[in-house]
Design a protein around this nucleic acid. Structure first.
Lengths: 216, 216
DNA sequence: AGGATATTCTATTTATCATTGGAATACTGT
DNA sequence: ACAGTATTCCAATGATAAATAGAATATCCT
């Protein structure tokens, strides 16, 4: 019953906690949950110095939360397995349940809470009936690695130029990575300014997957 | 779309990671998942200096993973909510799935892998048929705050003296906190030395609860 | 082979965290 | 009010982590 053996065992679990103990690393996990990505793609999307991103990725790899694959001169990182995505989801849920500071931080990033939402089940039913147009506003790369059935890929950066592709009659639902992804918020605001009735999926592809709904 | 607002948002999630980034704090969460406990009870069970335990509990409280309740001069800590227990379970599962160093660390603490296990469902069925005696070898306090239906409380410390209470004919199953709790390992070894056919529940009360099986 | 590109390693500075003894605080029970 | 008990606060030390510039490595392409 060595105390040091016990400590060593719990230290193993703590390694994962430590790895998730930095905002930048959590952000990296958030992006990697969408699919694998190269180091400089991650540096771009997070706006962090390349060397710093590399250092954080090493930390995640030492904790075995991510693994790598080499392709030519690029190294692609991805989550080590489904349990890691579930750990991340559990982290989000725990924060939502317990952290009183979270709503303010979310509003400061996502903007005022003026965007109407739609739940998974309702969207699922309306999509089956064809009474709604679902758009995926993530970068095309993320759409390619898995998206909602029937969703159209219109990355946020192209949305303003592709308004004509949206049918006038039906309601539009935009979604992106998850509940704290700013892309769909911006998309909804943009479309509403153009007079299109739009809502956003309350959470994103990650939770959709976790709920065992189909993905293409 | 301030980068600093994004950083602040993810910093909120990272707070929970940071809080789980120390072996001692994970151990505290492990114990608290069984029910609320006072500061010095936690210091005793973990064998850590009282001041140090208090400091770690403050850290957990700042992350809102635990809350407190005062009763007379004692302060009782407990997990802030069910999402925290689920976060802890997700941490264990991710470690099991991804961490190659975990099996060795577990064996160093729990002893050689010579203890036969029984799954939740099998135990559930055999308990219904009454062909098995289920003993809860955790401290009586933890038994009191919730235990498997029909289980008898025999804390490990008393087990050697209460062997006569175990019926000779039926198989015995011992369980404790979870898959990494040493109590049931020790219990099984002790009973087997006395010739009683014994197995341990593969995981513990925490996973039993998470699987929505009944608890008394 | 040699230049180009992507990533990691090394080294340094700065900031944050862990541990713990001793003092301070908060509450109880007489 | 006061002595007793449980817990937290304070302060000091040592240890660990973060950020990043510059050098080194690995692979590709011609």
């Amino acid at each position: 019953m060595g105390r040091e053996a016990k400590e060593a065992l719990f230290e193993q679990f703590a390694r994962l906690g430590k790895a998730l103990g930095s905002a930048k690393r959590v952000e990296l996990v958030d992006v990697l949950a969408q699919g694998e990505r190269s180091v400089d793609a991650l540096a771009q999307v997070t706006g962090v110095n390349l060397t710093t991103v590399s250092a954080h990725l090493q930390a995640l790899r030492r904790a075995h939360l991510v693994t790598t694959r080499r392709e030519a001169t690029r190294i692609y990182y991805r989550l080590a397995g489904p349990a890691v995505a579930e750990l991340y989801l559990a982290l989000l849920r725990a924060a939502e349940q317990s952290l009183p500071e979270l709503p303010d931080a979310a509003e400061a990033y996502l903007g005022p809470d003026d965007v109407e939402e739609i739940g998974r089940e309702e969207l699922w039913h309306r999509a089956e009936q064809g009474t709604v147009t679902v758009i995926d506003v993530r970068p095309a790369e993320e759409y390619a690695s898995g998206h909602l059935p029937g969703a159209v890929s219109i990355p946020l950066s192209q949305l303003a130029d592709r308004l004509s592709e949206l049918p006038a009659g039906t309601e539009v639902v935009a979604y992106c990575r998850g509940p704290y992804c700013a892309l769909s918020y911006a998309a909804v605001r943009l479309l509403r300014e153009h007079g299109l009735p739009t809502r956003r999926l309350a959470d994103g592809i990650l939770q959709w997957r976790a709920a065992d709904l189909p993905v293409e």
